[in-house]
């Protein structure tokens, strides 16, 4: 329990990174994002994800377009913008760097 709590801020910080990664693959619908995250350590709920996506959109990293669905009203499909792709590339590099540092310090 203690370890889990200690790692909570880490997961929290990484969630944005992971959402950018998921959105980068193809244009996705919120339920897709939740499904991808469910079952991982980063399982997330709508209550958290919608505000986060709204923030990313305001920062110009993702955007959405409306798409008709077979059942129900049109859905928002999210995709990365150019700025989002640049940010994700930077985060990827940074993450690789962190991994390297951790591995080196361990030995």
């Amino acid at each position: 329990m203690d370890t889990d709590q200690k790692l909570a801020p880490l997961r929290k910080g990484l969630l944005e990174f992971l959402v950018l990664r998921i959105v980068s693959g193809s244009s996705v619908y919120v339920a897709d994002i939740l499904r991808r995250l469910a079952g991982t350590e980063f399982a997330t709920q709508e209550g958290t994800l919608y505000p986060l996506l709204s923030k990313l959109r305001r920062e110009g990293l993702v955007d959405y377009r409306w798409q008709e669905s077979d059942a129900g009203p049109p859905r928002k499909y999210y995709a990365l913008t150019d700025a989002g792709r640049a940010q994700l590339a930077e985060l990827d590099r940074y993450w690789a760097q962190i991994n390297k540092t951790i591995a080196e310090l361990g030995n």
């Binding site: 997961r11 910080g13 969630l15 944005e16 709920q45 958290t48 505000p51 986060l52 920062e59």
Partner: peptide, 23 residues
């Protein structure tokens, strides 16, 4: 899940990235 209310600052992306918490 509870709605994450941390108000993100429009300018500071890094600071506000802490706003999103896993459930």
């Amino acid at each position: 899940g509870p709605v994450d209310g941390a108000a993100p600052s429009p300018a500071g992306a890094a600071a506000s990235s802490a706003g999103a918490a896993p459930a």
